[in-house]
């Protein structure tokens, strides 16, 4: 029996240990650069260190080519942070995914988030061929079997050092059909997911309804659910997310709060307005975390502040989530 399984942990990752110890977990997110500069990752790592238990590294998010999640994750490990490797089904078939994950594990990565992937039509290579050999639920099952059954998707045995990831999946409580969403989550749990990170939540009432159904199905007792939150930078961004982004539910109240943030600040005071918006965006996130924390079955938050990593500290601090625990 491997070391990881003899102590009862599936992967032994810090994230797993934090959750197992019953702490309210905090994860962050880091978008790799559209270039090969390692220092970009190192600088961003400094902004996150000590503030979060693990950091998601996106996999060509919105279908725009960036440094690979595993490559950036390796740099993060060197900086002493724990990555959560995101892996989508858009760009790789089952061979490539398994092969990359063997490499990721060998390089020290221990957490994995399994995703379908944004459609390539949104990105910078819209004429690309997509893969979708397997879907995100099949991906969860595949990596859980690599860990727990020491076998590849084809059934062949992994004779030496099966990769032992703490396996996550996403859930969008605001996608349609709304009634099916908890059942889709149930399929991910059945496939063996250890943790769930949700889509950005701005509509707490609707999320609470989703969680009610999740509890009814008993899913919160089988999987760690981390609620997704993220600061908006301006009323324009809030409106864009409300009106243009599929799968997001941004209530008018959020847009109004952002708009009112600059009340009394002169239009010519560009910096003053910008700071006021940013402060309000951070405050809204803190308020959301405090409301979401009260919902039974939520055991952590996933803070998405892509290209605004500086916002993580005031959010985590403001929400009273510091210092981060040091689990055994």
């Amino acid at each position: 029996m491997s070391e990881a399984s003899s102590n009862g942990y599936k992967s032994g990752s810090r994230l797993e240990r934090v959750l197992r110890a019953g702490h309210f977990a905090v994860t962050g997110e880091l978008g790799p650069p559209q270039g090969a500069e390692a220092n970009v990752i190192r600088e961003k790592a400094k902004l996150l260190k000590g503030l979060v238990d693990a950091v998601n590294i996106t996999d060509n998010q919105t279908a725009i080519v960036r440094m690979s999640s595993i490559g950036a994750g390796t740099l993060l490990v060197q900086e002493g942070l724990e990555p959560i490797i995101q892996m989508t089904c858009r760009d790789r078939n089952r061979l490539a995914i398994q092969s990359d994950l063997l490499g990721a594990y060998a390089l020290g990565m221990r957490n994995l988030l399994c995703l379908t992937g944004d459609h390539q039509s949104f990105g910078n290579h819209p004429t690309a061929k997509n893969v979708h050999d397997i879907d995100s639920i099949q991906l969860v099952k595949m990596v859980v079997d690599m860990r727990d059954k020491a076998c590849f998707q084809c059934g062949d045995e992994i004779k030496e050092t099966p990769p032992r990831f703490f396996v996550g999946a996403a859930a969008n409580p605001f996608g349609d059909p709304f009634e099916f969403r908890p059942y889709r989550l149930a399929k991910k749990v059945k496939a063996g997911a250890d943790f769930i990170q949700t889509q950005l939540i701005y509509n707490v009432e609707r999320f609470a309804k989703f969680m009610e159904k999740v509890r009814e199905l008993g899913l919160h007792q089988q999987v760690y659910i981390l609620a997704g939150v993220g600061p908006v930078k301006s009323p324009g961004m809030a409106r864009y997310m409300r009106d243009q982004v599929a799968g997001l539910d941004v209530p008018d109240e959020i847009v109004d709060r952002m708009t009112r943030a600059t009340d009394g600040i002169d239009e010519s005071d560009k910096k003053g307005r910008r700071d006021a918006w940013r402060n309000e965006g951070i405050q809204i996130t803190i308020d959301l975390i405090q409301q979401i924390r009260e919902i039974e079955g939520v055991v952590g938050v996933h803070i998405m502040a892509i290209e605004w990593e500086e916002a993580i500290r005031p959010i985590v601090e403001g929400a009273g989530l510091l210092p981060r625990p040091e689990p055994a």
Partner: peptide, 10 residues
């Protein structure tokens, strides 16, 4: 997809 809608169904 074979196991239900992705998060982009709205």
């Amino acid at each position: 997809l074979l196991n239900g809608p992705c998060g982009g169904s709205q």
